[in-house]
Simulated scan of single mutants.
Amino acid sequence: MLECLTKINWKKVGLFASGTLFGTAGIKVLASDDAKKVYTNCTAAVLRAKETVMNTVTTVQENAEDIYEGAKQINEERAEAKVAAEFAAEAEEEETEETTEDSEAETTEAEETAEEK
């Protein structure tokens, strides 16, 4: 009988017994009222942090919306300015064409008058 006791690895048995003891004590510690207070305080801190983060996110979203609206306004103004510039260029071309036609007509009239004389 003593032979089987010598074959047992007492180090492993001791580790198993210690683990069981600490595990049982750990469960009691984790389920205690003090531990519940710690859990409650940690949860409350997380909720406060969440509220702060959500307020920051809301502020950033509002600023992003303002920036987006400003960018849209700038693009609209540029588009209007481009259309106005194109319109002005077309009007200038038409005036140039009319002036050229008037000059050609005057030249033709001057030539006809010169031929008559």
Score class of each variant (00 low, 15 high):
V60D: 02
S103D: 14
T108Y: 00
N41H: 13
N9K: 05
R48F: 06
T108W: 01
K7Q: 08
M1P: 08
T99I: 09
E101Q: 12
L47P: 02
A85V: 05
E109A: 05
A17C: 13
A45P: 11
L5C: 09
Y68S: 08
A88W: 03
L5D: 10
A91M: 09
T56L: 07
A25G: 04
G23M: 01
M54L: 09
G19W: 00
I27D: 11
E76D: 15
K11R: 11
T59P: 02
T58R: 00
A114W: 09
V57G: 01
T108M: 04
E51D: 08
T108C: 06
T113C: 06
I27K: 10
A35F: 05
T24N: 12
A84H: 05
A44P: 07
E104P: 02
T40I: 04
E97P: 02
K37R: 06
T20C: 09
M54R: 01
I27F: 06
I8Q: 11
A64P: 07
D34Q: 06
Y68T: 12
F22V: 10
E112G: 00
E94W: 07
A114I: 11
E109K: 07
E92D: 14
N55A: 08
E116T: 10
A44Y: 08
R78Q: 05
A81Q: 11
E90V: 05
A71Q: 14
M1A: 15
T20E: 08
K12I: 09
E101N: 13
F87A: 03
A110D: 10
A105D: 14
N55L: 00
T40K: 06
S32L: 04
E90G: 09
C4K: 07
T6L: 08
C42Q: 07
V57S: 00
G14V: 02
V13S: 06
L15D: 13
A31H: 03
T24Q: 09
N41F: 01
A89N: 12
A45E: 12
E98W: 01
N55C: 03
D102G: 08
T20S: 09
A81F: 02
N75Q: 14
K50F: 02
E65Q: 06
K12M: 08
D34W: 03
A91N: 15
L2S: 14
A110V: 12
F22M: 08
K7H: 13
C42K: 07
E116G: 06
A85C: 04
S18Q: 10
K12S: 11
K28T: 13
T6W: 10
K117Q: 09
A44Q: 15
K50V: 02
E109H: 03
T59N: 03
T6M: 05
T24M: 07
C42L: 15
A114R: 10
E76Q: 12
T96N: 07
A45T: 11
E93Q: 08
T108H: 01
N63P: 02
A85E: 05
V13T: 06
E116Q: 09
G26N: 01
S32H: 06
N55T: 00
